[in-house]
Amino acid sequence: MAIGWYLVVSALIFVIGAAGVLTRRNPLVILLCLELMLNAANLALVAFARLHGREDGQIFALIVLVVAACEVTVGLGLIVAMYRRGLPIDVDELNELNG
């Protein structure tokens, strides 16, 4: 398969993730859509690694995997803290910073 097709799939996944971030209101689902966007970037990185025959792109993809795991951990921690305080789990309702 030509590398270009992998890039097209990656672009489509990224766009679907961006649309999800813009339209959904549940922060859990927004985190999932961010995962989609990061995975799209990963697919592009691995495709370019294959294109050039070097493994550097795969290293980048693994680092992105680590960063995504960190982001999920902190994001889910925030959601659990929101739930504990009885705040609504809805990004439209949460529009002020309030310790």
Binding site: G4, L7, A11, V15, A18, R50, L51, R54
Partner: peptide, 27 residues
Amino acid sequence: FALVLAIELCIAMLGSALKGISGKGAP
């Protein structure tokens, strides 16, 4: 916005004259 971004990205990749991405990559 997502649709516009998708069209733009597809034009950028499929319509580009880059030789590399239409090949199968390095041996």
